[in-house]
């Protein structure tokens, strides 16, 4: 069956639309000139300036810490929630549970951010915790957002998987906890890994929720980029953008390579 000319043309145009702006940024980042419009020669001077900028480096470190912690927390909570959705029968409050799990996905970031900030402020007033906001509060906020994504990924994997293997393990004499650790967990590991990666990227990418829930000492990379971008185009941001694109391409390439080597599919489903 032929794809048809119009859809195919749209696909090409659409892909160009998706890639051209980023490619322009990457090219500009190697421009010696401060003015983006004029090409004055190849240079890596903006990378040098970027790496001597303490503010950006500190923000990048904060972002990585927050992303790693919140992704791990979200993966733990989300895996549990995915198991609940796919494997556990009805229980009291199941509808409420599913509704709450969906809220971080449908709420605009500004509302999630504001509401969590109000929670942290109220909790500090009542219990003295968290005393001020910082890395910890961003981690909690990002984990809450990402756990829903992880839950849906894990649930999809569990639902696509027959229960035969788990039942066979029980039949062969494994008690429930052993069935879970020896069979269920290894089988959903790819989904858990994908969930962690998504949670990590979501956290690394978030500006709005982090802005609401951060404190003065916990500026994340998107927050630093945002305050710089607001002032206009900056060669340093071009360099940073190129590095970010390169690192995510590298991570994805690595993940795809591992998947293909293990004979798996690139896109789950």
């Amino acid at each position: 069956m032929k794809a048809g000319r119009i859809p195919f043309a749209m696909l090409v145009i659409g892909l160009a639309f998706l890639y051209v702006p980023t490619i322009v940024v990457i090219v500009t980042s190697f421009n010696d000139s401060r003015l983006a419009g004029v090409w004055t020669g190849f240079s890596v001077r903006w990378y040098g300036e970027l790496f001597s900028d303490r503010q950006f480096l500190g923000a990048a470190a904060n972002s990585l810490i927050v992303a790693a912690l919140s992704a791990s927390l979200a993966t733990g909570l989300g895996t549990c929630a995915g198991l609940v959705m796919a494997r556990h029968g009805p229980f009291l409050g199941r509808t409420t549970f599913l509704g709450l799990l969906a809220t971080p996905l449908v709420l605009p970031e500004v509302i999630t951010g504001l509401s969590l900030l109000l929670l942290f402020v109220t909790a500090e007033q009542l219990f003295g915790w968290p005393s001020g906001r910082g890395i910890g509060t961003i981690v909690v906020a990002h984990a809450t957002l990402a756990m829903s994504y992880v839950a849906y990924i894990v649930q999809a994997r569990l639902q696509g998987m027959s229960r035969d293997c788990e039942e066979a393990a029980a039949d062969l004499g494994a008690p429930p906890l052993k069935v879970f650790t020896a069979v269920t967990l290894p089988l959903i590991m790819p989904a858990i890994g994908a969930g962690w990666l998504l949670a990590f990227v979501l956290s690394l990418d978030d500006l709005v929720i982090a802005s609401f829930t951060s404190g003065p000492q916990s500026t994340t990379l998107p927050m630093a980029i945002f305050s710089s971008v607001r002032l206009g185009i900056s060669p340093k941001i071009n360099a940073l953008a190129t590095l970010l694109v390169a690192s995510s391409a590298l991570c994805l390439g690595l993940a795809a390579w591992v998947q293909l080597r293990r004979g798996g599919k690139l896109v789950p489903g």
């Binding site: 027959s162 035969d164 293997c165 039942e167 066979a168 393990a169 039949d171 062969l172 069979v183 290894p186 089988l187």
Partner: peptide, 13 residues
């Protein structure tokens, strides 16, 4: 007693 599943249910990992 032990059951042989229709799908065989061999542990793929």
């Amino acid at each position: 007693v032990n059951l042989m599943f229709q799908s065989y249910a061999l542990f793929p990992h």
